[in-house]
Amino acid sequence: MDTLIHDLQDITIRRISVSEMDNNVYLLTAKASGAQVLIDAADDFPAIRHLLRDAAADTTATPALKLIATTHQHWDHVRALKELVEATGARTAAGTDDAEALPVGVDVLLSHGDVGNFEGFDLTAVHLRGHTPGSIAFVYQDPAGPAHIFAGDSLFPGGVGNTQKDPERFTQLINDVSERLFDAYPDDALVHPGHGKPTTLGAERPHLDEWRARGW
């Protein structure tokens, strides 16, 4: 199975789906430096190891996993995290309000607007409260194309993430998604969710009022 989903000017983006929960694991690799960031070590360490091997073809340098970034604390997004950290020694990052629930120590505590600088690309942390207190979306702004938003479980085709029918949490999430994603990025921005298929902000934008009215 070809894991390469985007071959961009400066980086590649690879994706695999793991576990019975159809969790997406994303890997960004800088073509020039080999620097890598993996988003959500969700499950299936052997499959993730194979993903890393695949990405060696994407750079002329020696690949180096610089960071394992976790979108949020839920168990289905972290089942391979400990094993991957032990195997690679990579640093970890997660939202400040979710970090204590992770199965490993978190090296980089993320707040809204934090920017991670890697050799060849940057990632911006967008704090989206509601699905969990510390959910983080990671945004890569391609200098030659649209933004790529790795949304975790906060935004999907057809709606925002699950807030367990809690009106306060839903309002917080729909507000954050509206203000921090839809108001901040144009319609061509690609959304890579924590489960399932991608979408764009443009495809979802017309439905924001409908989502808010239905309450989920």
Score class of each variant (00 low, 15 high):
V177K: 04
V78N: 10
A87T: 05
G158F: 00
G159W: 06
D58F: 11
A147N: 05
T92A: 07
L173N: 07
G95C: 11
F150I: 09
D142A: 12
N162M: 08
D40I: 02
L67C: 13
L51H: 02
V160F: 04
G161C: 00
D43W: 06
E168N: 10
R129E: 15
T60E: 14
R53Y: 07
L52M: 12
G130N: 02
L52E: 00
H112E: 11
E86H: 07
T60F: 13
H127G: 03
P46S: 10
A47C: 01
P146F: 07
A94W: 08
S178I: 03
L181E: 08
G113N: 11
G105T: 14
T132H: 06
T71M: 07
V104Y: 01
G89D: 03
Q172H: 12
V108K: 11
E179A: 15
D54T: 06
G120K: 04
D54C: 13
L123M: 09
F45W: 09
H72E: 11
A57K: 11
E168C: 03
D40R: 03
A144F: 07
F138W: 10
E168L: 10
D40Q: 04
P146I: 03
E179K: 15
S154W: 10
F45I: 12
R53S: 13
P133G: 13
T88I: 01
T71L: 13
E100T: 15
G158I: 04
D107Q: 07
R91M: 15
D76F: 13
H50A: 15
L52T: 03
P133L: 15
F170V: 11
G116I: 14
A101Q: 15
L65F: 01
T88R: 02
I39D: 02
A57E: 11
A144I: 00
A57L: 13
A42V: 05
Q141M: 08
F118V: 01
L155W: 05
F118S: 07
D98M: 08
N162Q: 12
D43I: 00
D97Y: 14
L52N: 09
E179W: 08
G116A: 12
Q141V: 13
P46C: 02
L123P: 04
D153P: 08
G158R: 00
R169C: 14
L38S: 03
A87Q: 01
D97H: 13
D153M: 11
L109M: 11
P157I: 00
H77G: 02
G105W: 01
A69D: 03
L102M: 10
T163A: 13
D54A: 07
L81G: 00
V104M: 03
R53N: 10
A69K: 01
F121M: 05
H148Y: 09
S154M: 13
D54G: 03
G134S: 12
D142P: 03
I149E: 01
H77D: 02
R169W: 14
G113I: 09
S111Q: 15
T171P: 01
